[in-house]
Computed example of a mutant assay.
Amino acid sequence: MLGDGGSAHREIVDILLAHGADPLLPDADGTTARTHAERRGFPEIAAALLAAGGRTPSP
């Protein structure tokens, strides 16, 4: 998930978001892509998800 956070993975995130991917869609454990990006140290991906409306949902 999110690979190594490099430019290719950032581009994939941008493409998915541009085509309507839901940045708030959680995985099976209830964790969003933004949370994964933040935990793995990928600030550019986390920022892109936040800009697309990927705020951490309330429990």
Rank of each mutant, 00 (worst) to 15 (best):
G5H: 04
G41P: 04
I15K: 12
F42D: 03
A37D: 04
P57N: 06
P43M: 07
E38R: 08
P43S: 08
A51V: 02
T32G: 04
M1Q: 11
G20Y: 11
I12L: 14
G41L: 09
P43K: 05
A47F: 02
M1T: 12
M1G: 14
I12P: 02
A33K: 01
A18S: 15
D14A: 15
S7Y: 03
E44R: 13
T32L: 03
T35G: 05
E38Q: 12
I12M: 14
P57L: 03
L16R: 02
T56D: 09
H9A: 12
L17D: 03
D4L: 11
I12H: 09
R10S: 07
P57W: 00
V13K: 00
D22M: 06
G54T: 05
A46S: 12
L50D: 08
G53F: 06
T32N: 02
L2R: 03
E38Y: 02
A51D: 13
P43V: 08
R39K: 15
R10F: 09
A21P: 01
G6L: 11
L24I: 09
A51G: 06
E11N: 14
L24V: 14
D22W: 05
G5M: 07
A48G: 04
H36N: 08
G6K: 15
A47Y: 04
S58E: 15
R10C: 05
H9K: 06
I45A: 01
R55D: 10
A8V: 15
P59A: 12
R40C: 07
G54A: 09
A51Q: 12
L49M: 05
L24N: 09
E44N: 13
L25P: 00
P43T: 06
H36P: 02
P26W: 00
A37Q: 06
I12F: 09
P23F: 08
P26H: 07
D22F: 06
T35N: 02
G54L: 01
L16G: 11
D14H: 12
A21H: 03
L17N: 01
